[in-house]
């Protein structure tokens, strides 16, 4: 199978570009979505883009296994964070009857 040249040998840049796209999508979701669940999903994307970076740097950069370890660590943290965030989202729903972040602005007042 013949790949174009820029694909023939996938390098660090490829991973970084994917990661950047993932990050941007995640950020877009976090900033623009009103639904709190979607915001959470955006955060997950951002985390995963970071994971990708870690793994990529681990593979191509000076890092050896540390990158993998941190990526694993981040996955675990993300899982815990997701659990807590979902619990908070549930409570917010119970409290306000909505998961719209625009309406949840008690701290401001």
């Amino acid at each position: 199978m013949v790949f174009p040249e820029w694909l023939a040998e996938p390098g660090l840049n490829h991973f970084l570009v994917v990661s950047a796209i993932l990050f941007s999508l995640g950020l877009l979701a976090v900033i623009s979505r009103r639904n709190i669940i979607m915001v959470l999903m955006g955060i997950e994307l951002i985390l995963n883009s970071a994971n990708l970076n870690f793994v990529a740097f681990s593979r191509y950069g000076a890092l050896s296994l540390e990158g993998h370890m941190i990526a694993l660590f981040v996955i675990i943290i993300a899982a815990a964070e997701a659990a807590i965030a979902l619990a908070i989202a549930l409570n917010i729903y119970n409290r306000f009857g909505s998961v719209d972040v625009e309406q949840i602005s008690e701290l401001k007042e």
């Binding site: 950020l27 976090v30 900033i31 623009s32 972040v101 602005s105 701290l107 401001k108 007042e109």
Partner: peptide
């Protein structure tokens, strides 16, 4: 500018 909305702050931050 202190809207109290995290998303706004995030926009400012970015």
């Amino acid at each position: 500018i202190q809207t109290g909305k995290v998303q706004n702050y995030l926009v400012f931050a970015v």
